[in-house]
Nucleic acid binder design. Structure first.
Length: 434
RNA sequence: UCCUCAGUAGCUCAAUGGUAGAGCAUUCGGCUGUUAACCGAAGGGUUCCAGGUUCGAGUCCUGGCUGAGGAGCCA
């Protein structure tokens, strides 16, 4: 029995006979020579088979292979300058697990395809080199997020996905039947995080988030993953620094561990290497001046649109922190700036290269009376917030936190045009399958 | 919800209102170092749907469906 080896490890077996388990990626043919390309989820290697060197039935079975047919292949690993990975496999035998028939071939060919076709075949599209690279970077970012908070003494506290009402009231929610009642899919773990922070000091939640907005842009999903830290006694400045350190940490980790994937994606490494703290910090008022100077129509009191964000991101090679927006455009739980009560102690982080807002957060309103007033003003159902008001009744303290959308971060770090490629099975307006 | 664009072979796309085509994929044949291999041949069509204009509609008109990009809103 020859050892079963992963393609990414074939270099450790140069000169040896090994068995690979995987799929046929492509087959090139030149007379009595065959060049089957194998993939196994860890890499791709080209096999070489000379007709005179193997039994006729082995040659014929390889010659008849179709794209994505599953197989086990045995051969000798040989270093070769001509091979993209530096190694080739001199194939001696192939065990075909499933031969895909020519009448119903694998749909995704090594040529160009349109978005709709690829999205309809997302379950197969994931096998492509590019999608595998993105999955790898996504995995690395998620692991790095966990490492970052764990190393800083945060406790992961999971927040519920079924919620009784809106966290922020304004956004559209997905409604679901909950026995005799109605429930909503969470749009943020924020309020529960505040409860957890009062219990453990530093907490974060990390899970799926749902938004029923009919947004149809390259930055929107209806189901996406969000990590939300919340820190007792932290002020706005503390949380801005935390976000800055987190993002720099994530970029550094991907640069350290996922170079091959970034190369596959043709990501400009130099741009990522510039993402070092400190990031530029702009007040809303300062950002507004810059935007108006660049010809934006935005007036004081309005929130930034996608075009405004892109314009701002073009002013820096690093992410930008924009803080102290007018309270009127922000959620009810944002603390007012004591120096200028019309402003909220909040912060958005805008990614470079037009990838949009990746972080939103700030200092929470710790005062009971003011919070009650805000809930009333915005016509929020007081009863469902009673437990939240308890947090202000029993030992309220200043505290701050933020939410970071994983898909936008993955999209930015991978340099993707659209967030739909950053999540294995994207859920979007008009896209619920596969 | 609104604006713009698109829908033709399995896929990516051509086709002035006048016989519906190419490349890839598939099948067959050729080639002993191919790199989205190449060369030759074959099969493959409800031109998104329903009406309308016209001698004649893939093409023009009306309505609908589906998709893409964007706006608003957001991470």
């Amino acid at each position: 029995m020859t050892p079963v080896v992963e393609i990414r490890r074939v270099s450790e077996h140069a000169g040896q006979e090994v068995t690979l388990q995987g799929w046929l990626y492509n087959l090139r043919e030149s007379g009595k020579l065959l060049f089957p390309l194998f993939r196994d989820g860890t890499g791709i290697i080209q096999g070489v088979m000379v007709k005179s060197a193997v039994p006729p039935e082995v040659f014929d079975s390889v010659r008849g292979l179709t794209q994505e047919s599953s197989l086990r292949v045995t051969g000798k690993v040989r270093a070769d300058k001509r091979a993209p990975g530096g190694f080739e496999l001199d194939v001696s035998n192939v065990e075909v697990l499933q031969l895909i028939p020519g009448e119903a071939p694998y749909p995704i060919t090594p040529k160009e395809h349109g978005t709709e076709f690829l999205m309809d075949h997302r379950h197969l599209w994931l096998r492509s080199t590019r999608q595998r690279a993105i999955l790898g970077v996504r995995h690395e970012i998620i692991k790095a997020v966990r490492d970052f908070f764990d190393e800083r003494g945060f406790t992961l506290v999971d927040t519920p996905i079924f919620t009784p009402s809106a966290c922020e009231g304004t956004t559209t929610l997905f409604e679901v039947n909950y026995f005799e009642d109605k429930a909503y899919l969470t749009q943020s773990g924020q309020l529960y995080n505040e409860a957890a922070a009062m219990a453990v000091g530093k907490t974060y939640c990390f899970g799926p988030t749902f938004r029923a907005e009919k947004s149809k842009t390259r930055r929107h999903l209806t189901e996406f993953w969000m990590v939300e830290p919340e820190v007792a006694f932290a002020r706005l400045e503390d949380i801005m620094t935390l976000g800055e350190e987190l993002v720099a940490f994530l970029v550094a980790r991907v640069l350290a561990k996922r170079r091959p994937e970034l190369a596959t994606l043709e990501r400009k490494i130099e741009n990522l290497e510039k993402v070092q703290p400190p990031f530029p910090r702009l007040s809303y008022d300062e950002a507004l001046k810059i935007l108006q100077g660049k010809g934006s129509e935005i007036q004081w009191g309005g929130d930034f649109g996608g075009t405004d964000e892109t314009m701002l991101s073009e002013t820096s090679e690093k992410p930008i922190l924009v803080h102290r927006y007018p309270s009127q455009v922000k959620a009810f739980y944002m603390a007012p700036d004591p120096a200028r009560p019309e402003l909220a102690l909040c912060v958005d982080m805008i990614a470079p290269e037009g990838h949009g807002e990746i972080i939103g957060g700030g200092e929470r309103l710790a005062d009971l009376a003011l919070l009650e007033q805000r809930i009333q003003q915005r016509n929020l159902p007081r009863q469902t917030f009673e437990w939240y008001l308890d947090l202000r009744r029993y030992g309220t303290v200043p505290h701050s936190g933020f939410g970071m959308g994983i898909e936008r971060v993955v999209g930015w770090i991978c340099g993707l045009e659209h967030v739909r490629e950053t999540i294995p099975f994207p859920r979007m307006l008009y896209r619920l399958t596969p």
